[in-house]
Amino acid sequence: MSKLSSISRKVPQILRHGILACTGLFALLPFIWMVSLSLKPQEDIFAADFHLWPSQFSGVENYTAAFVSAPMLHFLANGIFVCAAIFLVQLIVCVPCAYALAKLRFCGKDTLFAAVLVGILIPPQALAIPHFIMLYLFGILNTYASLIVPWMISAFGIFLLRQFFRSIPDETLQAARLDGLGEFEIIWRIMLPMSTPAIAAFGIFSVVAHWNDLFWPLIAVRDQEISTPALGILLFRDDETGQSLGPLMAGSVIIVTPLLLAFLAAQRRFIDGMASTAAK
């Protein structure tokens, strides 16, 4: 009797793990498939029977092929450089503006804030044509600058930081003024260190968006030399070596891994950051 009831009490737990295992498998399947294929030789992939684990391990060959025939590391370096540059410029531009909107009194403040809110509404893809024309006129299409310039301002970043800055008590700023800090030092020594959660959330939002972005690099860049990872893997697919699935999957692993590792290393930060910036 008691044994029976203990089993019936376990049923919901078993059901929970069962369903989550299924949905989890759905989420993970492409990753498992990708890794599996990246370790297989071409004939193994096309073999009539299928095994998850390669019958003949050719991971080394596949990954070497990916690294040799396409500048995978170069793509990654481009991605890091472009994302870092975008985020840095966004911070330099947005932080003073957010500080002024949150803590200073000036004429036109409400207008500017309304403009920021409208700015959040505009989807960036809708500005692709004018951005393209602008970069074309400047003659900087197909350069690193063309990947960075359109993203120098983030209306959403201003909004997010302004909301957070407002939660910092005025008394703290007044204490800083009495202690002799100038306005720049107040931003650098007081506002920024006290806003690390907001900065981190904004950073994650910005980096994830631009690391994974395909739409804009596809428009602005034709050259493998300055491709970001998302575009680079497409160029590699159209490449001769990329026609073989093993190296192509190896390339995909290389492209996808860095961000996933960063996510696994700081899960809480990432999930909270993405959730808190979802308002976008």
Partner: peptide, 29 residues
């Protein structure tokens, strides 16, 4: 400006800098 007036102020909320150590809080001025 406040810093030219040679005044010190203690606030209701104390307004300590949460990210600095006590030493740095006192040393800042």
């Amino acid at each position: 400006r406040p810093k030219e007036r040679d005044v010190a102020m203690v606030f209701q909320s104390y307004a300590l800098y949460p990210h600095y150590t006590i030493y740095d809080n006192i040393a800042l001025p």
